[in-house]
Amino acid sequence: MAGLYLVALTVSALGVLAVDLRHRLALGAAPGRKLLLIACGTVFLLVWDIAGIASGVFVRGDSPLLLGVDLAPHLPLEEPVFLAFLCHLTLVVHAIALRVAARRRAGREAA
């Protein structure tokens, strides 16, 4: 089913965004800075992908789940969506880890 991977990425990204906004983790806490970080991370990883494609390390596999739209040779449309999702997810997980560590620290200090 063409496009299923893009749909799965979009649904996953919306789920992470909902958790993020609900708990004010990344975009919910500082949207401007976090959007810049997501954009910079996505661009960095796209450049990394392009270098890998140019050197022959990365190639696009055939999958019926991809939409079939290539932004460049061996660079499917889904790739930048995945990279942006990965960057956002990393920021959310990092924010959660910081909160957990702060709560543990506060618990030890209270005891």
Rank of each mutant, 00 (worst) to 15 (best):
A97L: 14
E79D: 06
P64F: 15
L17A: 13
G52P: 04
A110Y: 04
A29L: 13
R33I: 11
L71T: 01
F44N: 07
D49C: 01
L14C: 14
V81L: 14
V92G: 00
L67M: 09
I38Q: 03
T90V: 12
L27H: 00
R104S: 11
L36Y: 09
V81R: 05
S55I: 03
A110D: 06
L83C: 08
P31H: 07
A39T: 07
A54C: 07
V59D: 12
G41A: 02
I38T: 01
L91R: 02
S12G: 10
A54I: 05
L21E: 08
T42V: 01
V19G: 06
G56P: 00
G15T: 01
L4F: 13
I38Y: 01
L98C: 14
V59S: 14
I50C: 12
K34C: 15
L37P: 09
A39E: 02
G32E: 01
L83V: 08
T42D: 00
G61W: 10
V16L: 07
F85Y: 11
S63Q: 04
A2M: 15
H74F: 06
H23P: 08
C87Q: 10
V7R: 09
D62A: 06
R33W: 13
V16M: 02
A95I: 03
H94K: 15
A8M: 09
V59N: 13
G41H: 01
A30T: 13
L35C: 06
V16K: 00
I53Y: 03
L89Y: 14
L65E: 10
V69E: 01
V16E: 00
V7K: 04
A51L: 13
A111V: 07
L67S: 04
Y5W: 02
F44Y: 11
G68Y: 03
K34E: 15
L14Q: 13
P64S: 15
P64I: 15
V81D: 05
L17N: 06
H88L: 11
F58K: 03
R104Y: 09
H74M: 07
G32V: 03
V47I: 14
F85G: 07
D20C: 05
R24M: 08
T10R: 10
I50Q: 15
A18L: 13
D62Q: 06
H94V: 15
G56T: 01
F82A: 08
R99A: 09
V59Q: 14
A97G: 14
G107L: 14
A106K: 04
L6I: 13
E79N: 06
L17W: 09
A111L: 06
C87P: 03
T10D: 10
L9Y: 10
V93E: 07
V47S: 10
A101C: 09
P80T: 00
A13H: 04
D70N: 09
A51M: 10
L91V: 04
I53L: 02
H94N: 14
A101P: 04
R22L: 13
G15I: 02
A18W: 13
